[in-house]
Computed example of a mutant assay.
Amino acid sequence: MAIEADTLAPEIELKNQHGETVKLSDFRGEKNVVLLFYPFAFTGVCTGELCALRDELPKFVNDDVQLLAVSNDSPFALRVFAEQEGLEYPLLSDFWPHGEASRAYGVFDEEKGCAVRGTFIIDKKGVVRWTVVNGLPDARDLNEYIKAIDAL
């Protein structure tokens, strides 16, 4: 069961595609966070979603908002994926312990061994304000994120 709105966001500490450690708490008091879980790099729907975010990046990475995209891929795979698709925002690796962050947010599919499409908008106090969880084949609507961010 995915974490619901008005819940304190669980802390996560993961490596990005450059091997740097990124913590959710790094943004507390500074920025709202769009925390986006996706199944795997290099897959069709995921690539489409992440490239759509790339194309609208000023709405998701600015003085007020930070986008963090999390998958169960290794940091090495994420680096190649980011370079190939021109993704400038942090791609975080929930590779080991496998799925730990995805499980903390209730979006890890034990059968498939990967995260489902869960998005959590977290305010500057670290509280989840908005969530959406879609099945593996279903892309999310970026306009819904923008509305939720604007409402903060």
Rank of each mutant, 00 (worst) to 15 (best):
I3E: 08
A5F: 03
A9I: 05
A9F: 04
I12G: 05
E13A: 15
L14Y: 07
L14D: 03
K15F: 07
T21D: 08
L24K: 14
L24Q: 13
L24H: 14
R28N: 12
G29P: 09
N32P: 00
L35K: 13
L35D: 14
F37E: 11
F37G: 13
A41T: 03
V45L: 05
C46F: 01
C46H: 03
T47H: 14
T47D: 09
L53I: 13
R54M: 08
E56Y: 00
P58G: 06
F60M: 05
V61I: 09
D63G: 14
D64A: 11
A69R: 10
S74F: 01
A77G: 00
A77C: 14
L78I: 02
L78E: 04
R79L: 13
R79S: 14
A82F: 03
E83V: 03
E85H: 15
E85W: 10
E85F: 14
G86W: 04
L87A: 04
E88F: 03
P90G: 08
S93M: 02
S93W: 01
D94G: 02
P97S: 12
H98P: 03
H98L: 15
E100S: 14
S102E: 08
S102M: 11
S102Q: 09
R103M: 10
A104G: 00
G106E: 11
V107N: 01
V107P: 03
F108W: 12
D109R: 07
E111P: 00
K112I: 06
G113C: 09
A115K: 11
A115V: 09
G118M: 04
G118T: 12
G118N: 09
T119Q: 07
T119W: 01
D123F: 04
D123Q: 06
K124P: 05
K124V: 12
K125W: 00
V128L: 08
